[in-house]
């Protein structure tokens, strides 16, 4: 990541295009936070590229004063991979919705994560297809009633984090559209992580799926239903931080400190950097019902990145062979013969 000393403000990353999302859409908040996060990050607009697929959230690149592409449905990860591999000096963000990223683009998503290309994938999860006006998505809950599932869906959803871990991902973070500070915090962490980083932002579709995350985002309820994980800190939640997560056999359990003999010493300390993903996965799978939904950086483990390894291999092989150009390579590696007097000897 090429940062500069120059100070940026959010306006440096805003384009002149007027934003056309529905009033009240969660995307507005995420866009504003992204402008702020980019200013804080210190990477110049010309060193930044924002790549999206198709869907409501995928309009986002038009609102950025950076390099960007609004591409085709599902393919943002593949296009971002090509861009980053060609130009490791660019900081590349990918914007995808749950349909774009996990249905039509599911294959590219898991392979971008597996390959560990250094792109920052922002996954706007509203559990619905908005731009096509209200069909269920691969993250819609079982039984969700939508225009294409009038009697409820008969299939299980993906949990994005589970896909990331299944694809051996090394960075996963989560936020909620209204949690502006958390969203900025995880965006910055994602950008600073070397490798594929996935940030799931639970986002409200005010038209077709209004309130789908409200038990996690309402002021009165969110403290009981979510836990903000912070590196090196105890896993505490609740209005008074009176509750904590403890180990319970192979699983996790939410307990009240001081009740049933549980003390603060029993509460787990978060470590996003431990290579084993067993506990990360358990934390990421908490859904806000039995156990609180985890927001913040859940996993952040250093690992070799694809584009840097490609670059290093190119340099190593070039150095070893030391060919000047194509002709030199052909003459050095192919069986050749010479016709006529003036030509080069074999």
């Amino acid at each position: 990541m090429e940062t500069t000393e120059k100070q940026f403000v959010p306006a440096d990353f805003k384009s002149e295009q007027s934003v056309r999302w529905c009033p009240g859409c969660g995307d507005h908040a995420i866009l504003n936070v992204l402008h702020k996060a980019m200013a804080d990050l210190g990477v110049a607009p010309e060193k930044t590229a924002v790549i999206s697929g198709i869907g409501c959230s995928s309009r986002l690149p038009y609102y950025m004063n950076t390099y960007g592409m609004h591409t085709i449905h599902g393919r943002a990860a593949a296009i971002a991979t090509g861009l980053k591999t060609a130009r490791p000096d660019m900081t590349v963000w990918q914007i995808s919705g749950d349909g774009d990223g996990l249905a039509i683009g599911g294959n590219h998503f898991i392979h971008a994560v597996r390959r560990n290309i250094d792109i920052n994938i922002l996954l706007f999860n509203n559990k619905i297809y908005g731009l096509t006006k209200g069909q269920y998505s691969p993250t819609s809950d079982r039984g969700a009633v939508t225009k294409s599932s009038p009697y409820g869906t008969t299939e299980d959803p993906f949990i994005p984090a589970e896909l990331v871990f299944g694809a051996r991902g090394n960075f996963f973070a989560r936020s909620i559209d209204i949690a502006l500070d958390t969203t900025k915090e995880v965006m910055l962490a994602a950008a600073r992580h070397h490798g594929a980083s996935v940030v799931e932002v639970l986002q409200n579709c005010v038209i077709f799926n209004n309130g789908s995350h409200s038990f996690l985002s309402d002021k009165e309820r969110r403290d009981e239903h979510t836990i903000h994980l912070r590196q090196g800190e105890k896993m505490l939640f609740g209005k008074e931080m009176e509750r904590g997560l403890v180990q319970d056999g192979f699983g996790l359990k939410a307990v009240k400190i001081g009740e049933d003999g549980w003390t603060i010493d029993d509460v787990l300390v978060h470590d996003a950097t431990t290579p084993t993903n067993f506990l990360h996965q358990q934390l990421a799978m908490m859904d806000g019902h039995e156990l609180p939904l985890a927001i913040g950086v859940i996993r952040d483990v250093a690992s070799p990145t694809y584009e840097a390894e490609v670059e290093a291999q190119v340099e190593a092989v070039k150095g070893k062979k030391n060919f000047r150009n194509l002709r030199d390579m052909i003459l050095s590696t192919s069986e050749t013969w010479t016709v006529g007097g003036e030509a080069e000897k074999e």
Partner: peptide, 15 residues
């Protein structure tokens, strides 16, 4: 698809 799309990304990138 990823073959052509990665190439499109690289093309945009100036390759």
């Amino acid at each position: 698809i990823a073959g052509v799309c990665s190439a499109i990304g690289a093309s945009y990138a100036g390759h």
